[in-house]
Design a protein around this nucleic acid. Sequence first.
DNA 1: CGGCTGCTTGATTACGCTCAAGATTAGTGG
DNA 2: CCACTAATCTTGAGCGTAATCAAGCAGCCG
Lengths: 257, 257
Amino acid sequence: MSKDKKANVVKIADVKVACANCSLYELCLPLGVQDDDLDLLESIIARRKLAKGQYLFRQDKDFNAIYAIRTGSLKTFTLNSDGSEQITGFHLPGELIGLDAISSSRHPSNAKALESVSYCELPFEQLEILSSKMPSLQRQLLRIMSNEIREDTSLAILLGNSTAEERLASLLLSLSQRFKHRGYSSHQFNLSMSRTDIGNYLGLAVETISRLFTRMQDNGILAVNGKLINVLDMDKLKSLTRTCPNHRADPHAPHSA
Amino acid sequence: MSKDKKANVVKIADVKVACANCSLYELCLPLGVQDDDLDLLESIIARRKLAKGQYLFRQDKDFNAIYAIRTGSLKTFTLNSDGSEQITGFHLPGELIGLDAISSSRHPSNAKALESVSYCELPFEQLEILSSKMPSLQRQLLRIMSNEIREDTSLAILLGNSTAEERLASLLLSLSQRFKHRGYSSHQFNLSMSRTDIGNYLGLAVETISRLFTRMQDNGILAVNGKLINVLDMDKLKSLTRTCPNHRADPHAPHSA
DNA sequence: CGGCTGCTTGATTACGCTCAAGATTAGTGG
DNA sequence: CCACTAATCTTGAGCGTAATCAAGCAGCCG
């Protein structure tokens, strides 16, 4: 059915990684790590690239590293017994993926590039050793994992208790806010995933997604043009999500305050 | 609406905690920690108790510690803007709760005892310090958090894509297996939570839960007597959860003869 | 005993799935 | 560049699952 393209990972020439200069520093793992330690951390990081459709890792394969996305986006999904996909997340720059594999030392899911992707690879064994030596790194790793627990719980609440419209509104709002945090427009953005992917992720039929986009457009909330989304009335969009407290409401809040 | 009982935490006389002798050792945080280090770990642990209905922690309150359940069970839940509960989990002995609070240093949820509970309190700051000194502790903490991410993701899949019957069957099977791991019967157990709680957690109406129990009893899968559940046909119960693939394929009766 | 909370059962309604077909876009090669 | 195919997206019609509304029953405690 689906072609098994080799995950033809390209290693970029060993350029200095320069977390310190990375625009995603605030969202990423090194946050809070001091200069000297940052050099040490960077020494274990490898920068790589994926083309659209390639896999970052595959289900049931050995877990060796976690990954920080630099550019592009991916979807993670599991395979059902009948071979169909079940999408578990969409992932944007600055986000860490592969954390769910630590407990079993195998990846419970697949990660596939929705477009061209560049990422940082962080070998986990070395990361563990480093984090015992760097309290700030250890703390940030725990924070990120804790945050993911919170988000996954919120997603479960959303999928368990919301209508189709609330689910899609929540996803759009989540994407909007995540784009904003990354310095992009929160009002206009491109969906890198298909309608089918969205429906799969939200537990809805493709037809429902399509009808919802039409309805939201008719209601003056969105202007939809294929994958390009314009949020015309952000307040109205937010009001559609109100039933549900905090699905990624504050994606990367947890900097101390 | 709900009584605001004071979380009247009782501190037990400072008995030796003795993780090494605890029947839950295999499930709990100290797993893998060596003798000498275990003493150190135990030195920061406090053992406490809750009566039914009391809170272990409350939403929006400062996060200071994570908690390991020794006996009894709790539910965790968030409060919606209208004051209604949204249950996010049921928790059994050996499980760690409070991990979702690390990222923001505040508890995003409430934890309330469903029956008498005894638990271990692990002050987080001290735990962090200890875990930099004990690789096995650090590793186990990461493993437990990673596992929780995996489980929360699974829950989201379940709630997004399953029928009412599949959801309840999955919960019952989960409880059954968790009881088994703890040395209790997997075939006969008491539900410590109400039907309302179950429905709330699974995103279903109370009436649906009630009807499902009746149906599963009629089908010879369960014997239900109030809160006491007897699993008469474990295979049939499992088969109700297998139907996981994307969408219902068979429009006609999922009843087995 | 009355009042309260939790559980069960019935009747009706609606949201979103399924099936079906058409429209639009994307990808490929002559 | 256009022709052709495949994939994705949109729209419509009918129906099933589970929610809602409503009532009755059981258990618990003052």
